[in-house]
Design a protein around this nucleic acid. Sequence first.
DNA 1: TTGTAAGCGTTATCAT
DNA 2: ATGATAACGCTTACAA
Lengths: 335, 335
Amino acid sequence: MADTLDQVAKIAGVSRATVSRVVNNSPKVSPRTREKVKKAIKESGYKPDAVARSLAKNETGIVGLVIPESVSRLFSDPFFAPFIQAVTEKCNDLDYELMLSLLTTPDREKEQCEGVVSSSFLDGFLFASSTVEDPLVDELLSDGTPFISVGRHPNEEVNFVDVDNYGGAKRATEYLLNLDHERIAAITGPLDQAAGIDRLKGYKDALREAGMEPEEGLIVEGDFTEESGVNGAQTLLANFPTAIIAANDMTAIGALKAVKKSGKSVPEDIAIVGFDDVASATAVEPPLTTVRQPIRELGRQATSALHQLIHESNPGDGSLRRDFLETELVVRSST
Amino acid sequence: MADTLDQVAKIAGVSRATVSRVVNNSPKVSPRTREKVKKAIKESGYKPDAVARSLAKNETGIVGLVIPESVSRLFSDPFFAPFIQAVTEKCNDLDYELMLSLLTTPDREKEQCEGVVSSSFLDGFLFASSTVEDPLVDELLSDGTPFISVGRHPNEEVNFVDVDNYGGAKRATEYLLNLDHERIAAITGPLDQAAGIDRLKGYKDALREAGMEPEEGLIVEGDFTEESGVNGAQTLLANFPTAIIAANDMTAIGALKAVKKSGKSVPEDIAIVGFDDVASATAVEPPLTTVRQPIRELGRQATSALHQLIHESNPGDGSLRRDFLETELVVRSST
DNA sequence: TTGTAAGCGTTATCAT
DNA sequence: ATGATAACGCTTACAA
């Protein structure tokens, strides 16, 4: 029936402003009037117009999650489900509506991202690019809409939250070192992604700090797939490693299979450690020692960082938000 | 610099209305003025305010895709990735922004759906509920926002598009009948979902039309998982079927494994047919005969049906949109 | 506590 | 072809 504040106001016999106050739970309304208005609202089935409200308040209550990845990659990478879940939940808590933006083809990526972002429907957004130094980030910066990058970014002005990939890999390597391993090999992730780069650096630094120089023959590049773990381990075997640290669990599982197939046993002949702590890490034999990354926490933190950023009085002058979430070494039987 | 039409107008030395016309590509602007204005826009970096525009035009250009499923289910069900991909692409074509709404917990489902839907930010939305007769649909109807249900719904007033599960299952059964199978068993899907119900009905009707009465001992209820295929087949084996028609490919694959394990061969001793034609249907031995459902087409059709619905002159009086997309029997070696 | 009225940044209707 | 000006539905000083 009633579609506008004015109509409700007429029904309740008050002014439009009063109805607005009731709708917005303003305390400055007498109990009697409030009841009267509420009744009018209920009876007329009035629903406030979100667009008009957004225009007046200059905020929409919508935040975006833009993931410049193909939908298929999105669905196959075990990172995204818990991440998106956590972001969704946190948005719910903060009374944000979440607008999840997916992309179609890589070549339209830029166009589509900018469309979403500059549409001004978003109070802010999370940008989850898997490649470090994504050039799109610099452009987004100039658009003015507040955003948080999920994953570190070199640009001085971007706020981000990431997982401490470096520290996690370093700690895992140190752990292996403490076990007196002398020939610790690594199968890396893709080296255009922060996770790949940082985990490799953590490994190398741990070695150096222990007085060993990383050996070229003990490092092979992988791509986070199980297959690259199989291949990587086969290559590595020729150089007699006593341990293999894989860039993620899927790779570790591949390596595990290859090592076992070669007739060696884990962890007796060769120790193996993964990264991520996905479900299958405990499903293999032996269960994988791995570095757990707090994906859900990442989603939550990113969302609340965004929330703060949006409500910052002087956007830009507030201190930069840059967080690395702690990882945790989970020791199981593969080491 | 310039954030509003007025500012641009001042720079270009024209009226706000003219700038608006240029922005909206109205033909009623002289070439000279157009250039002048475009230059002013470019130099000032003006970006139209989508919210204000939405208020004035009474449309946002945003459509929603609401899927009342947990994120984990969403990511594990092979249906959703291609479906979402297709919807995303079609929205791109139609210049819609897509707002993908996920839910957190089932108990907050209703609340969350209604929040999204009645927020009035959406010009319309796709509602993809897996359970038939979802009661939420009836409520959404009264909200007034145009929507298309993905999956049939009994309510007379809802527009939907679905896949012809019934026809697909029926055809598959008829195909088996033509192969002179006399004891065709079925492992069903969950019977609160349209896909489960309709596929079962297709199977039964095909049998009846061939003059056979469905036998209780030849029908077992599954839940679309591989496991339910294994269990189902084991149960069925006791009643000596010559063929098993599974409610989907995963179930068929489970059945296939169970049958082979029992020492019987496929298709010689027992023929097996699946439904969906997922990737793994060709990865098993023997490759699965199955009913392909056009998931991407479903996404596209649903989106364009929504588009039409939104632009219908007299919403509600237009004829109902109810489509069942054709399925296709893909014959491979399991039959 | 309540009402009046001035925005919010567009689009769209009318004149001119 | 262009410019006033009135919507669009709401929030929010400012008055009363």
